[in-house]
């Protein structure tokens, strides 16, 4: 039987894919929200004067960066419950994985951005009597944040795509939805093409939004 491209598959599967997309978006936003907090904390810890604080953050970053996310997901979802004696709901596990994973990369983004701010800014803050924390909050952080925008956009796109790996722990996100559809209608070509297009639309949207933010910050002075 010759292959025939069937556009009707798109329209038939569209509602299901959108339900999967909804989960993908929820996990991405939730994961990146906590990932940014985690990454900011770890990034600042890496700049600490305290040896142990630095080391803790360092071990976290290296351990996460150095292992595949797929393994992390399997370990958290199937491994950890055996030790804890309680199951973690797939959605929760998914958000934790994305948060912990993106946090490690965001930590490096944060560290780099903060370090790129000229030392004189810090000294000027301290010289007007601000505490260390105030100097960080009012002077260093706002400037560093602007420099983080491009690499953060990159990380957001990577994390969005990484949510597809969560299909292995049974999260009904976009990729898993696609797979489930093909197991019923056997239209792998059309379905995965549609899935790919939806991911592309999402990643292009992130890129667009980040570019807008970057532009806006640039026009309102450095």
């Amino acid at each position: 039987m010759a292959f025939a491209f069937d556009t009707s598959v798109f329209w038939d599967t569209f509602p299901m894919l959108m339900r999967g997309l909804k989960l993908t978006i929820e996990i991405t936003i939730g994961g990146l929200f906590f990932g940014f907090i985690l990454g900011s904390a770890a990034g600042l810890m890496k700049l600490s004067r305290n040896f142990f604080t630095r080391k803790i953050a360092g071990v976290y970053v290296e351990a996460i960066r150095g292992t595949p996310m797929l393994v992390q997901a399997m370990f958290l979802y199937y491994g950890v419950p055996m030790a804890l004696g309680m199951r973690i709901p797939p959605m929760t596990a998914g958000i934790i994985i994305i948060a912990v994973n993106s946090g490690a990369y965001i930590a490096e983004i944060v560290r780099g951005a903060v370090q790129s701010i000229h030392k004189g800014q810090f000294e000027a803050g301290r010289s007007i009597g601000l505490t260390n924390a105030q100097t960080m909050r009012f002077i260093i952080w706002p400037q560093a944040l602007k420099r983080m925008i491009p690499p953060l956009g990159n990380q957001f796109i990577i994390s969005l795509k990484d949510t597809s790996l969560l299909m292995v722990i049974g999260v009904g996100e976009l990729m898993r939805t696609g797979q489930e559809i093909t197991s019923v209608n056997f239209r792998a070509f059309e379905v995965y093409l549609a899935v790919a297009c939806v991911y592309l639309v999402m990643t292009l949207s992130i890129a667009f939004v980040m570019r807008r933010i970057e532009k806006k910050l640039n026009t309102s002075r450095r």
Binding site: H118, R126, R221
Partner: peptide
Amino acid sequence: INEVRAEAGMVFQQFNLFPH
């Protein structure tokens, strides 16, 4: 030291104004 620094202002060679 923060209180002392507030009593001893400093002007730097490179100005170090806050650009944002």
